[in-house]
Design a protein around this nucleic acid. Structure first.
Lengths: 187, 187
DNA sequence: GCTTTTAGCTAACGATGTTAGCCAGCCCTG
DNA sequence: CAGGGCTGGCTAACATCGTTAGCTAAAAGC
């Protein structure tokens, strides 16, 4: 039995990639084992099980999303920053639907949970966008939740093919950015 | 073996109720069978399998959501209608998280698919809200998608406990309604 | 080089979805 | 009211999947 040289990070990365390819619901331990060149039980040397794997994929996805959004925002402010953040977020979800799906429903076990840390980073990236608008201190939490709901809702609906009828989806998203910009400005 | 007198509708209704109780992910054929007082294989006399069951629950959920939103909107217009629709939708998702979760990711097989019909009804209820605003014909599709994304995103994030930090969630939702109203008015 | 650790393996078990095939209760005609 | 067919229930069995137990050989450290 030749050693493959796996480690938790490699397993999680492969799992995330596989989830993107076949859908999170079809990510099976057997499939993942085959992908990394190992028998299913061997995976348990690196991850605790399917639930643990899901949590780790979620943490990875949130971290990557935070990087993407955070990077896209840099150097922009106001509407440009909003547009950059929203586009980066949507692009990430559409390119990585499987790993993003893993983030839905995971509850951080505590403040030190990698999921919580990565989630906070992603929120921070969106928070930076809001700084470009004049929003009352007491409203920033609400605005942040709104932004998150809007981006999350649109991206997941599109990823699930939830938009059936005619109009162009990209166009709708640009319209949505303009809408959010108006609403934040008129706050 | 006494006859229980099941039919597809009863099985689907029980499945939807059970999904709300234990979560869609934990809705198992065995559990559903136990709930309706029957052995697992007997369920297959009424539904085609788990995937078919999921589709039927989704159709039921969309239909109920359409009723809830449509009913809430009646007699209101403009911001009142928007608020009523949004509140009704969120209340439905929070009261029935399991069956609503079943709607995510189902693709209608065609225009006659009950899922498609119920989905159209729900969209129609939101469309009625938009009629209270002065929106260009070419923008209604975009506005509809925005509204759907906003409601879907907020409700699913809350249902999944996605809002961790402090501020009151009900307050955020009311803020979100005001935000959407501003944005639609300033279109 | 020997020991210790550990990453891989095979074997096996439990849970779950599903199919096959049987049988009894209900409806409906004669 | 009797008998026949439909149909909704059952048991038995199987495939798949996640997971655990226990073994073995490769790597790492003294």
């Amino acid at each position: 039995m030749p050693r493959v040289g796996l480690d938790p990070a490699a397993v999680v990365a492969a799992g995330a990639a596989l989830a993107d390819e076949v859908g999170l619901a079809n990510l099976t331990m057997g499939l993942l084992a085959e992908r990394v060149g190992v028998r299913p039980p061997s995976l348990y040397k690196h991850v605790g099980g399917q639930e643990d794997l899901n949590r780790r994929i979620a943490a990875l996805a949130l971290s990557e999303a935070a990087d993407a959004v955070g990077g896209a925002v840099q150097g922009y402010a106001g509407r440009d920053a909003l547009a950059a953040a929203a586009r980066a977020f949507r692009a990430f979800v559409l390119e990585h639907p499987g790993r993003y799906a893993a983030t839905i429903g995971v509850e951080p076990s505590g403040p030190d949970d990698p999921v919580a840390i990565a989630g906070q980073r992603l929120l921070g990236a969106f928070m930076a966008v809001l700084r470009g608008y004049e929003i009352a201190e007491s409203d920033t939490d609400h605005a942040l939740r709104m932004l998150r709901s809007l981006c999350h809702g649109f991206a997941t609906l599109q990823a699930a093919n939830g938009f059936q009828w005619s109009a162009d989806v990209d166009e709708s998203f640009e319209w949505l950015i303009a809408f959010a910009d108006r609403g934040l400005r008129a706050g």
